[in-house]
């Protein structure tokens, strides 16, 4: 019985770990997608790509807290850069010297 419980426990942990890994990969892919969107709009910020790289390195090292915090910062930068580009699509013309 104990063997069975242990096997079930191990299986649960493995499934959970695999789910976490997939979730993390999805999160990285989403932030990267936003970075590329900002870059295509010609509006990528200086550090975003580096932040994603650092977040990956920290995740590989197992420091998930640091990885998350770097990824959140990268996401904020990418999102803000996209909003900046959307705003500037019209706003720039208001600055032309008349």
């Amino acid at each position: 019985m104990r063997v069975f419980v242990n096997l079930m426990l191990m299986a649960t942990v493995l499934v959970a770990q695999s789910g976490c890994s997939t979730g993390l990969e999805r999160r990285f892919a989403e932030v990267e997608r936003m970075r590329v969107m900002a870059a295509e709009a010609g509006a990528e910020w200086l550090q975003t790509e580096e932040l994603i790289k650092q977040a990956k390195t920290e995740a590989t090292r197992g420091d998930m807290e640091r990885s998350n915090s770097l990824l959140e910062l990268a996401q904020f930068q990418a999102e803000t850069a996209i909003k900046q580009a959307q705003h500037e699509a019209d706003a720039w013309s208001g600055r032309v010297v008349q």
């Binding site: 010609g42 509006a43 910020w45 200086l46 550090q47 930068q77 900046q84 500037e88 706003a91 720039w92 013309s93 600055r95 032309v96």
Partner: peptide
């Protein structure tokens, strides 16, 4: 457009 567009942090 490039010249008058705000960009970066």
């Amino acid at each position: 457009r490039f010249y008058y567009t705000k960009r970066g942090q």
